[in-house]
């Protein structure tokens, strides 16, 4: 990629790669984006009881380990910014 393309839109190869990454995560563990959304809502709901959180910036990501293998299960990462903790 040369410097003239730096400010242009993403190349189609990169778009394909990004689409695949997301697609394969749900394919591999049989988990739909809707299910992830539901998990996210319930997490927000339960954590809000104890602390106030920045709901806008809650991230739920399924990550697979880069090396495949029988014991390499995907894991769920939640990034939940805390605004303040209830007393």
């Amino acid at each position: 990629m040369n410097t003239f393309n730096l400010f242009k839109k993403k190349s189609s190869g990169d778009i394909a790669k990004d689409r695949l990454k997301i697609l394969l995560i749900s394919d591999r563990i049989n988990c739909s984006p809707q299910t992830l959304q539901m998990i996210k809502q319930e997490l927000i709901h339960s954590i809000s009881k104890y602390m106030s959180i920045d709901e806008e910036h809650v991230e739920i990501i399924l990550k697979k380990n880069s090396k495949r293998g029988k014991n390499k299960k995907p894991s769920l990462y939640a990034n939940i910014p805390i605004l303040n903790i209830h007393e």
Binding site: M1, G13, K67, R68
Partner: peptide, 20 residues
């Protein structure tokens, strides 16, 4: 030629995705 232009996934991209 397409890989070079960024319009096809490179062998490295595919290996990274499939992990074999």
């Amino acid at each position: 030629d397409l890989v070079k232009k960024g319009d096809m996934m490179s062998p490295n991209d595919v290996v990274e995705i499939l992990g074999i």
